[in-house]
Write a protein that binds this DNA or RNA. Structure first.
Lengths: 205, 205
DNA sequence: CCAAAAAAGTTTACACTGTCAACATAATGC
DNA sequence: GCATTATGTTGACAGTGTAAACTTTTTTGG
């Protein structure tokens, strides 16, 4: 019977629950994301999730983790896209980061909203976040190699770059960028400008 | 009878509720902040808050607004402190912003977590946020006047500076700055470094 | 192969939440 | 002074997260 999908009881809940939660998150936002609704959407009883997640936070944490994985993949894809023009990698990585935040605002907010802070230093969620950060470190290292960023502590420079992109992303999601219209063009413009200003500083003369 | 405090029924609930909510927020975090607990703490029945706030979100919104006011005042105080060394104003404004976030992490997260996004473009909360931003604009204008930031669209440059500080603040609150220890010294160091990098870019040669 | 243990899912129950409607009381304005 | 409004209370309701007891399936060791 390995014909249909998997072997045991339901198929695999846990993934189904994460998927259901993700769907609710994207359509109705975190505020309305309830454990019972997730269970309903997955077609199981309201207590079933507790066989796979210790509590609601654990489910949210898993969803957040999936978000970091997705973001990591997206940044990596961008990096390979621009592997022949390495001078652009840092800029494009930043723009991609911001685009992700705007495309999945609730997912993005969940990723950086308390779940992370609550996660201990050795939680898998934190590891996933650091893998995303590693993508930024890569971009900085590449930029250093091609002379668009000065030599120096790569990790530190990457933290700086990450902060810039993250700040732009968060303010954009919150609707505080490009005050009146807040259009895609507005955000792209200010993001491009800001990242470029930082790059000038990171070149160092 | 203007002896005690105020005139009517309770004194003034609404402020008492905001204060109680603030206290809960700072000691136990947003997750445990419940409307009924706020009412209890203020010494009124569980439905009393509805005479002053349409719903829970309205209370949270008021608390967030108070946060923006506090932050604005703090940034302004920093600005006057350094009025005789204007070259430092932007740096110090940024450091102060980050310090505020670390001092009141839950308050900070509330301010930028959904309530703002949910607030319409003409909500008082948004006005309060813009007043905070105005403080950054001031710092940039001062920096331009003393030649530490190049001429150009002040508003745009301020958005850039705000994003940098905000990104640092948010990542610091989330515990993603200064990976192992995350100590105050660590955060201060990376924040100072990052802001300075940006300043180099904003000088522009 | 099959009993026994473990895993996965269900039902019932409980305390607690946000919110509403009906009611009570205090303050204010004519 | 009294009617109106502002403020606060009580009681109720649907919905929530979570734990305990129970059932069903799956796995597994003799």
């Amino acid at each position: 019977m390995p014909k249909t999908t998997t072997t045991y009881h339901h198929g695999d809940l846990r993934n189904a629950l994460i998927q259901a939660g993700l769907s609710i998150l994207q359509t109705d936002g975190e505020a309305t994301l309830t454990l019972r609704k997730v269970a309903r959407e997955a077609g199981v009883s309201h207590a079933a999730p507790y066989r796979h997640f210790a509590d609601k936070t654990a489910l949210l944490s898993a969803i957040a983790q999936q978000g970091f994985d997705l973001l990591t993949a997206q940044l990596q894809a961008a990096a390979t896209d621009f592997s022949d023009t390495p001078q652009r990698i840092l800029l494009e990585t930043g723009l991609n980061y911001i685009q992700f935040a705007r495309q999945y605002p609730d997912h993005f907010r969940l990723m950086f909203g308390g779940v992370l802070r609550a996660a201990g230093p050795d939680a898998p969620l934190r590891a996933a976040a650091e893998q995303t950060f590693a993508q930024v470190v890569n971009a900085v290292a590449t930029s250093q190699a091609c002379g668009i960023v000065k030599a120096g502590d790569t990790h530190q420079l990457a933290t700086t770059a990450w902060s810039m992109a993250h700040g732009l992303a968060d303010l954009a999601v919150e609707g505080m960028l490009g005050q009146p219209t807040n259009s895609t063009a507005d955000v792209e413009q200010i993001a491009r400008f800001s990242l470029q200003q930082l790059l000038v500083g990171l070149l160092g003369r």
